[in-house]
Design a binder for these strands. Structure first.
Lengths: 126, 126, 126, 126
DNA sequence: GTGGTCTAGACCACA
DNA sequence: GTGGTCTAGACCACA
């Protein structure tokens, strides 16, 4: 379900956070589903439990999961999360576009590329 | 000419690199212009000279500047750089869009947002 | 009668204790009333019986209930309990106010806020 | 400057966070002041550096400090923080008052006690 | 069994 | 020197 990319420069705990965010946002993990236990997942991924712990703590802080002491971690209601995630994505896009324009790339080139790319992806999936 | 944002989480050398890339790409610094000396710039920004050194090394590695021993650093021909920079930006955009789609955000929302945003920016500048 | 909030970060046994303390203090449960049996309540709330056991032990320790072997748990006389509870609340309030003042919030702001808030609550109930 | 209370049930990292929040909010530590280095503070308090690290990470997340890689941690502008802290305190007070009222303590008793207490504290300081 | 905290110690990026 | 990440391993509270 989750694969760590050791060549990725991002820290492991962040990769774990991102993987679970996707799984939760697109409904693979539904509200109140039980997350794998810290120890189990640590074993599965051959990662130290502390690292998983940190990822789960971050997921909880962001509202993706909640902890019941002695029982485990569970997925929260996805309700407002999708909106927040969208804002996050939009903000990243805006920043990239801003600096791109400053570097002399035209707005038309940027929007053109994205539309092109998304069409390509769409046709791949269909 | 260059301002460091200490509250930015990115390392200082990376901020310096990015600032110069923009200055070179949009022509503020032209081909064969002399870069400020490592020591001077370090003093100006109250930064460790090692950090500037590292930024310059990175700029040279990416082909934005070249070094003449004993004389200093100079801006390269911008020729191919703009194309490479564009590729870099496009790649970043594609990655963000990919994960966004995986999280359940539709392609239409993404392209829609970007077009909207770029139009807003364009009208601000005009 | 009792609802557990799994998203609450406090341990379950503590939530159970607090709920019963309120029920006893405001008279919903009167002196010598029988408490639900450990097993029954555990079933009702889908909670581990050990957890209820622990909550009851804590309630007994604080004097809110007493145990009769073989017969069950019963509510104590509320007599002195209300006074103790009040002390407890006052102590918590004092601590919060102390640190607030240390952080630079004025005493007037604190008392002002509380009066304001209580008036609002009072009017809601009437 | 900072003292850990091992009898306090709260985790060490949380105590460190709270101590620094007070120092920053009431101006003992001003904007852009350097925080003690993780290692130094760890030595001083005979605490593991990881624990300090965690406290600092939390302080950064809450906006009290910012990190400059390779340089250290620095105090942020206190501007909006005081307002947020006040909200936090008010929320805690409201919750306590709510449950107190549910337990049968009158609003008048609560506000009366606080006013009384704050007056007492005020006269101590003057 | 489940998560939370902490220590000891290592290694890395950055300045 | 400074912070950031990670491992190994221990101990505790809670269910």
């Amino acid at each position: 379900m989750i694969i760590i990319d050791y060549k990725d420069s991002r820290p492991i705990y962040e990769q774990v956070v991102d993987k679970f965010r996707l799984l939760i946002l697109n409904g693979v993990l539904g509200a109140n589903d039980k997350m794998p236990s810290v120890r189990t997942l640590a074993m599965e991924l051959s990662i130290n439990p502390n690292t998983i712990q940190r990822a789960y703590a971050e997921l909880e802080r962001q509202g993706y999961i909640y902890t019941v002491k002695g029982r485990g971690n569970f997925v929260s209601d996805t309700g407002s999360l999708k909106g927040e995630y969208k804002e996050e994505v939009f903000k990243k896009l805006d920043e990239i576009c801003d600096t791109a324009v400053k570097a002399g790339i035209s707005a038309a080139e940027l929007t053109g590329h994205i539309e092109e790319y998304m069409k390509g992806e769409e046709s791949k999936r269909s």
